[in-house]
Design a protein around this nucleic acid. Structure first.
Length: 479
RNA sequence: CGGGGCGUAGCGCAGUCUGGUUAGCGCACCUGCUUUGGGAGCAGGGGGUCGAAGGUUCGAAUCCUUUCGCCCCGACCA
C-alpha cells in the first residue's frame, strides 16, 4: 500500500530505515555514525524524556549535569571498566592549538567523573544516599552504526546513586529497573522482560546488571534499558568513603541506570507496519490529526476550520496538552493528507467534511487497525481519549502476543540450536555456563544470553554443561 | 576491522562492459487549468561540478590509481 516504504518481509533493515526517513524522525549527519534527530523525532524523544523524568523525580532523584570531557586517567581507575570502554572511546588530544598533557575522553558514560565528584561530596553517612540523574549525550565509537539503535553519539539519561549499604543500593537498582519496566509497558506499550544479565553480558565494572529485554517484530531482541548494581567497585576506585554511625570509614555502594534514544528504535520496530510509523498514543507527540475536507473553500473557511479548531481545543483540554493538530494542507488532495499523518504514526485521524456536518458526526480512523467509526461530534471529547487508550492496549497486547508466539522452552543444546536456527525468536532454557560458554554459543548459533528473567526463580539442569541449579535464561539473536 | 553490494537531480534508477553532440527516465518540486472522502489528469518549467582527488586521452559518468561515504552479512556494543 505504501509506495515509499520497503515491506518488512522484503527487507527488514531497509523497512526500518524507510520508516525513519518517511516519518522524518532522523537524518544522517556529515560525520559517520552520527545522526540528526529531526523535529518530529525530537518531539518523540522529549515526550519519552518527560515520562521518565517525572518518574525519576517521583522516586526522589534530582537532575544535575556533569561534563562531556573526562580525564583519560579516570577511565583507567576501574580495570573492567577501562577494558570494556577504551576501544570505543573518542579521545581529545589537542585543544587551544596545543597538544594536551593528558588526553581527554569524550564520555562513553559517566561513572568515573561522577565517582570522582561523589568522593568529594560524601564524608558522612548523613550525606547518603545521593540520588542524581543526568540527561546527556555520550559517545561510543561503534563499528556498525544504525540510526537510533547504535549511533556514535546518542542521547540518554544516566542515573547515579550512592548508598550506605549493599541492601539499599540493590534495592535502588531493582527499583529503577521496575521504573523502566513500568514506563516501557504503560507508556511505550513495549512488553519487556526484566531480568539479570549473565556474566558475559554484564556492564564493565558492575557487580550485577539488570535489563529490560524486548522483542522486535523481526523476532530479534533489543536491550531497552539497563540498571547496574556496581557494588563497591567504583567506590573503591574513586575513594567514595563515608564515616558510618560507629565512626568507621566504609566504602559506599553505588548504582547506575540508563535508557537512551534507542527506545525510539524499539518503538519503531515493535509497533510499526508496512504503511509507516505507528506510535503508542501515550507517548505520541501528536495524538490526533483533524482534517477538514471539502472542495469548497468558502465552506472550509466559514464552517470546517472553526469547527476543527473547536474540536482541537476541546480535545487538547481533555488530554491535558497540545496533542492535536488541525491539518491545513489544502494544497494536497485528501489521500496525500491522510498518508502524511498515517506515515508519521499519528494514532487517530478525524475527518471532518460536509457529510460529517450534515450528520453531526466525525469520521475517526485508527492508525493501528485502519478501523473507521463515525462518532457524534458532541461525543468526541468523551470517545477520543477512550479510543487512544484502546489503541495503547491493543498495541501492547499485539506485541505481547507476538513475543509469546515466538518464545519457546528447550532443555538440551541440540534442541536449542535448532530452535534458534529454525524458529528464531526467544529461546528459554536452563543455563549455568561461563562467559566462555556464552561465546561458544554465540559463535555456533548467533544467539546471546539476553537475561535471566526475574519472574522465574526456578532452577534446573544446564542445557550445555549439565550442571544442576542452573537459572532460567533467555537467549536470542540481538541488536 | 574482514566479506559483499552501491555512489549519476530531493528520492529511485538507466547510461559505464565497448570513451565521442547539449547526460537521460520515473516519482517528487514550481506555475496554470481541470480535479478532490485512501497516494489525480493535462500542459509548461526549474533543478546535475555524474561521491572526491589525481592520472591516461584530442576528448572521461565511462579507462587507471588513490580516497571518502552509504547499505547488507560477520567480529564489537546501549
Amino acid at each position: 500500500m505504501a509506495r515509499n516504504i520497503t515491506s518488512r518481509t522484503e527487507d527488514y533493515s531497509q523497512w526500518y530505515l524507510d520508516i525513519i526517513k518517511v516519518a522524518e524522525l532522523a537524518d544522517y549527519a556529515p560525520v559517520r555514525g552520527c545522526m540528526v534527530i529531526r523535529p518530529t523525532g525530537y518531539a518523540l524523544w522529549e515526550s519519552i524524556q518527560r515520562h521518565f523524568d517525572d518518574a525519576f523525580k517521583e522516586t526522589g532523584h534530582v537532575n544535575a549535569y556533569f561534563p562531556l570531557l573526562i580525564p583519560n586517567s579516570f577511565l583507567e581507575k576501574e580495570a573492567e571498566h577501562v577494558e570494556g570502554f577504551a576501544p570505543e572511546c573518542a579521545v581529545v588530544t589537542h585543544a587551544g592549538g596545543e597538544e594536551l598533557e593528558e588526553p581527554l575522553i569524550v564520555r562513553p558514560t559517566s561513572e568515573t567523573v561522577i565517582g570522582h565528584m561523589y568522593s568529594k561530596w560524601i564524608q558522612s553517612w548523613r550525606d547518603l544516599p545521593i540520588l542524581i540523574n543526568q540527561w546527556a549525550n555520550v559517545m561510543r565509537w561503534e563499528k556498525r552504526p544504525r540510526l537510533f539503535l547504535r549511533t556514535s553519539e546518542f542521547l540518554w539519561q544516566e542515573g547515579h546513586t550512592a548508598h550506605a549499604t549493599r541492601e539499599e543500593a540493590m534495592e535502588e537498582t531493582l527499583k529503577m529497573l521496575e521504573v523502566y519496566r513500568r514506563i516501557m509497558t504503560d507508556i511505550l506499550a513495549l512488553p519487556v522482560i526484566p531480568g539479570e544479565k549473565t556474566e558475559g553480558e554484564r556492564f564493565p565494572g558492575a557487580a550485577n546488571t539488570y535489563t529490560c529485554e524486548t522483542m522486535m517484530s523481526d523476532k530479534k531482541a533489543l536491550q531497552a534499558g539497563t540498571s547496574h548494581f556496581l557494588g563497591q567497585n567504583f567506590a573503591k576506585a574513586f575513594e567514595i568513603q563515608f564515616q558510618n554511625q560507629d565512626g568507621n570509614l566504609e566504602y559506599a555502594w553505588t548504582t547506575s541506570w540508563g535508557a537512551s534514544t534507542r527506545l525510539i528504535g524499539a518503538i519503531i520496530m515493535t509497533h510499526s507496519d508496512d504503511d509507516g510509523l505507528i506510535l503508542p498514543p501515550r507517548v505520541a507527540p501528536v495524538k490526533v490529526a483533524i482534517l477538514p475536507i471539502s472542495t469548497d473553500d468558502e465552506m472550509i473557511a466559514s464552517t470546517l476550520l472553526p469547527k476543527a479548531a473547536e474540536i482541537s481545543a476541546q480535545l487538547d483540554s481533555r488530554l491535558g496538552g497540545r496533542f492535536t493538530v488541525v491539518d491545513k494542507q489544502f494544497h494536497l488532495r485528501p489521500g496525500d493528507r491522510f498518508f502524511s499523518h498515517l506515515q508519521r504514526g499519528v494514532p487517530l485521524r478525524i475527518e471532518l467534511g460536509e457529510k460529517e456536518l450534515a450528520s453531526g458526526t466525525a469520521r475517526v480512523v485508527r492508525r493501528d487497525t485502519g478501523a473507521k467509526v463515525d462518532i457524534p461530534l458532541d461525543a468526541l471529547a468523551e470517545r477520543i481519549p477512550q479510543l487512544l487508550e484502546e489503541i495503547h492496549t491493543a498495541l501492547y497486547e499485539k506485541a505481547l502476543a507476538f513475543r509469546k508466539e515466538n518464545t519457546r522452552f528447550v532443555s538440551g543444546y541440540e534442541e536449542f540450536k535448532s530452535a534458534i536456527e529454525e524458529q528464531g525468536g526467544f529461546v528459554e532454557t536452563f543455563f549455568a555456563g561461563t562467559s566462555d560458554d556464552e561465546k561458544k554459543i554465540k559463535e555456533e548459533t548467533g544467539a546471546t544470553a539476553r537475561c535471566m528473567p526475574l519472574e522465574s526463580s526456578e532452577t534446573g539442569v544446564c542445557m550445555l554443561t549439565g550442571k544442576t541449579g542452573a537459572r532460567r535464561t533467555l537467549f536470542a539473536k540481538a541488536y
